[in-house]
Design a protein around this nucleic acid. Structure first.
Lengths: 334, 334
DNA sequence: GTGAAAGCGCTAACAG
DNA sequence: CTGTTAGCGCTTTCAC
């Protein structure tokens, strides 16, 4: 194993000089810097992570807590996780993957062991039991999601309320007056995950303003569940001419079912979704949709958390403005 | 921050005693052990990860390299990753999430910095450029996948050749003589990812033995791509009565398209898939399928790698036997 | 059964 | 601009 001392000897300088060449925390003459750098990659030196962490109280690791649950739409999670990992590397950090299982206990463990310099939490509940601890520790933390009380932490999320409003506006402008909302799985609401409720609130409020009737039904992503939900909706509100789908897994089944009913999209019925752009674009009918910007969320969370680690940046709540892309699944009310 | 010394003082013993209580590496009288343990959770002590890693040359971290590519079926990856993280925790390890971007360079970095005790690699190519380095370092490593030369590393994977064979057998037994294989995206084959080619080999060999004609077409997961592929297949081999789908994203589009053609599944045409059971069970027609055992793969990889870290366990290639579940998408040739 | 003490490899004062 | 040195918190001989 190559150590700092090896490099120092090889380059004919002291250990601290090598350290400072690495950190850039004091000025080094060009000649010695070059000599040291040559030695470094000649010997293939990499600083020992443990030693560095011990001496500097900085691990250069960001902990990412992902939900263990399987009722959430997985691709979005994965996209965020990958975006977090990639962005973190670009800032010199590695990412520790924690499954949310033991929420508070995990937070305590990471804090106590100084394993990570900061935490990013996904799948945040309205009254998340990890938050009190997180605040207590004072470690930099960013939530991807929005809890009831966002004080003393940072939050990033899509502005789901605005997203909901945007959907209603788009459909109302096309003349629709009866809209059905195919929501997330019931468990998502029971858990009081903020985003689903915020979407609904946005939908409802703008619906009221624009005089649009809304029918909301939670729905699992399986074909059978969507079929059942669709049947109920059509029975309760036969005049429904448009659907807003929040559970991405439900979009394809819904389109397939409508096709079977010989109801053409968008001629007979409009469908729009809140989902990643890629999903929307590749559906059997390219979907008019409000994009869930998974990559941006991950990137932003990392940048925010890195800023905090470095002493810049403060607690803030950032809600990304939703963007609506009109594709081929929405049209005027028949 | 609570340190070992704090605990020692609180318990009225020496630092080494506390350390030994923690590690169990020498016998401690019940009375002092209890005293120490009480102090530990009274003070809320957690050992400092960096210090421990430095002193013991063990980080208790397993690095997981996941592919960055987006042409692979994401849910499987995510399921494996979560399974890895969960199993690792059960064995006292944390998981570092590395995106595969810079393959060999990342392996070198992790090795050089002693950040991880072992590595688990996903998305292994036939001639993976991370392997030479990995062998050189001598660190415990397990691949989820199978390279051309699996010497001096361990590998776990589904036996995709057997899976392919199983599909052909099932369909042949039902009387089908012309089978179309909807494969993974073309990029997957170009990259020479082992599993796709192994599946194909298994399919072809058993097809030859059983006198079944096979037509294989790579295919992206989008609806449009599946439509194009289906059209080509039906033109080239109008007598096709069964499909084997390996690209899971293609299953739903395929079923939808067949429905549009008024070809009933399984009465007019049989469809089967190689995909996670959950996907198969929730499709619009519950799919007869060979399961990709994502969780088992992750769990097994961790157990194997932990065994190696602890000096037990040796290099081996384990191919999990495929299991076929008959659901409602396959039937006798019409 | 328990303690004392020597590092592990690095960072960051403190001296020039 | 560079070197010397004292730890960071823990593990692990060595000694009793």
């Amino acid at each position: 194993m190559v150590t700092l001392a090896d490099v120092a000897q090889h380059a004919g300088v002291s250990a601290s000089t090598v350290s400072y060449v690495l950190s850039g925390k004091r000025s080094i003459s060009t000649s010695t810097r070059e000599r040291v750098e040559r030695s470094i990659d000649q010997l293939g030196y990499h600083p020992n992570a443990g030693a560095r962490a011990l001496a500097s109280s900085k691990s250069n690791i960001i902990a990412l807590m992902v939900p263990l649950r399987t009722d959430m739409y997985v691709p979005v999670m994965m996209e965020i996780a990958i975006s977090v990992a990639t962005t973190a590397r670009a800032h010199g950090y590695d990412v520790l993957l924690l499954t949310g299982e033991e929420g508070p206990a995990t937070v305590r463990r990471i804090e106590g062991s100084a394993l990570a310099d900061a935490m990013i939490l996904m799948d945040v509940e309205l009254h998340d039991d990890r938050l009190p601890l997180l605040r207590e520790t004072g470690r930099p933390a960013v939530l991807i999601g929005l809890p009831a009380d966002p004080s003393r932490v940072s939050c990033v999320d899509l502005d789901f309320a605005a997203a909901g409003a945007l959907c209603v506006e788009h459909l109302a402008r096309l003349g629709h007056r009866d809209i059905a909302v195919i929501g997330e799985a019931p468990a998502v609401y029971e858990r009081h995950t903020g985003f689903a409720e915020r979407t609904l609130a946005g939908l409802r409020e703008r619906g009221r303003e624009l005089g649009v009737r809304l029918l909301h039904r939670p729905c699992e992503g399986s074909y059978a569940a969507v079929a059942a939900t669709l049947a109920r909706v059509q029975e309760e509100r036969p005049g429904t001419t448009a659907f807003v789908v929040q559970n991405e897994a439900a979009t394809d089944p819904l389109l397939a079912l409508l096709r079977q009913q010989r109801r053409a999209v968008p001629e007979d019925v409009s469908v729009m979704a809140i989902c990643p752009d890629q999903v929307a674009a590749h559906a059997s009918v390219p979907l008019t949709a409000v994009a869930v910007p998974a990559q941006e969320l991950g990137r932003y969370a990392v940048e925010q958390v890195v800023a905090k680690i470095e002493g810049r940046g403060s607690d803030e709540v950032v809600l990304l403005a939703p963007e609506l892309t009109v594709r081929e699944s929405t049209g005027p009310r028949p």
